[in-house]
């Protein structure tokens, strides 16, 4: 694989938080990449390290968090070695981010038009009126209702969906190469969520922006991402194309995640499936596979040593699970029989 062809590349990244209780190993050696013009998703439950990962990539990691290993390359730059000044030139310009809760990230005392213009004026030497024209273009692009009037509104005067559109406009006004979206639709109603998904997908085409999506909602992932990384307890347990993950999942954690989504298009019993137990304590991560304690197919090897990553039908579809070790054939056959029966 040519490493230089990727827009963004994370290699063996490890991040810990040094707290009074000890070292919390939030991210434990993960590798992923992002190509130009694609959307990838980091998927997992709360606390799996997905938000910490993108904060680190964007240079937003704060004390007591610290990178303890690995590298992040953006184009030809080593992101972890940049000075604060160099970072600021990238942030908000080449890499931007939208968050889950727009109300707490917007400045309540500033008109939204000015907030959209802020990063554009910071990174481009333009006059106030040029910036304003650019803001209006942007608001038209995202089909914001009555932009000429609403650019003078304050955040509290707008609905949740409109505020999230303002966040999207703020993030895209500098035409960034990478957009990080951390649960961008979780706080929104479904009909508004559908609008925002549609908006982000169309802007990606129009502006050639690559998107890193973070979410726990597999429905949103199926609508946006071409490739998926499944994270658990600070590690990537499975990765592959959207089709690999949704139709040919290999890791028992991915099976559990998919089974626990209530399906609207299928008749369902009154029994809701879920993965029993809780994720491991990352102050003291388990020696073996992090999922072993909750995995119904776990054997002794799973508890004692971390499984190697195995490639499946394509080079890009990989999972870390002992079930695929040649010695575990009988166990794998039993697991697949059981899954077949569940479906």
């Amino acid at each position: 694989m040519e490493t230089s062809s990727h827009l963004l590349e994370v290699n063996d990244l490890a991040v810990s938080f040094f707290t009074y209780a000890g070292e919390v190993q939030a991210v434990r050696g993960i590798s992923w990449y992002l190509n130009k013009n694609e959307t990838i998703a980091l998927v997992g439950e709360s606390g799996c390290g997905k938000s910490v990962t993108i904060q680190t990539v964007m240079g937003l990691l704060q004390s007591p968090g610290r990178v303890t290993g690995g590298s992040v390359r953006f184009e030809e730059r080593d992101m972890l070695g940049l000075s604060a000044k160099e970072l600021r030139q990238l942030q908000g310009n080449h890499m931007t981010m939208i968050f889950q809760d727009p109300l707490s990230y917007l400045n309540p005392t500033m008109r939204v038009g000015e907030q959209i213009a802020e990063s554009y004026r910071l990174h481009h030497k333009v006059s106030r009126s040029e910036a304003e024209a650019r803001v209006l273009d942007m608001m038209h692009l995202i089909s914001f209702p009555e932009p000429e009037r609403n650019m003078y509104a304050y955040p509290h005067q707008l609905s949740g969906g409109m505020r999230q559109r303002i966040m999207v406009a703020m993030a895209l006004i500098c035409n960034p190469q990478v957009l990080f979206a951390d649960e961008p639709t979780t706080a929104l109603d479904v009909t508004i969520q559908a609008q925002i998904i549609e908006l982000m997908n169309s802007l990606k085409e129009k502006l050639n922006t690559a998107i890193v999506l973070i979410t726990h909602d597999l429905g949103v992932v199926a609508n946006m991402a071409q490739r998926i990384y499944v994270m658990y307890a600070g590690k990537i347990v499975e990765r592959g194309s959207a089709k690999d993950i949704f139709y040919r999942p290999k890791h028992p954690y991915t099976w559990g995640l998919l089974a626990s989504v209530p399906r609207l298009d299928a008749d369902q019993s009154r029994d809701f499936r879920y993965i029993p137990g809780t994720p491991p304590d990352l102050l003291n991560p388990p020696k073996g596979c992090p999922f072993a304690a909750r995995c119904r197919y776990a054997c002794r090897a799973c508890v004692s040593s971390i499984p190697e990553e195995m490639a499946f039908d394509s080079e890009d579809h990989r999972a870390s699970c002992w079930l695929y070790h040649p010695g575990a054939e009988a166990l794998l056959a039993a697991a697949e029989r059981e899954r077949g029966m569940q479906r």
């Binding site: 609905s159 479904v190 969520q193 559908a194 609008q195 429905g219 199926a222 089709k243 609207l264």
Partner: peptide
């Protein structure tokens, strides 16, 4: 409302007809 709910199924999503409501 029903058509706005995203399904965890990329193929079904690609072929699905979605009614996008305008505005709030």
């Amino acid at each position: 409302l029903l058509s706005a709910i995203p399904l965890p199924d990329p193929d079904a999503e690609a072929s699905r007809r979605r009614i996008l409501l305008k505005g709030d």
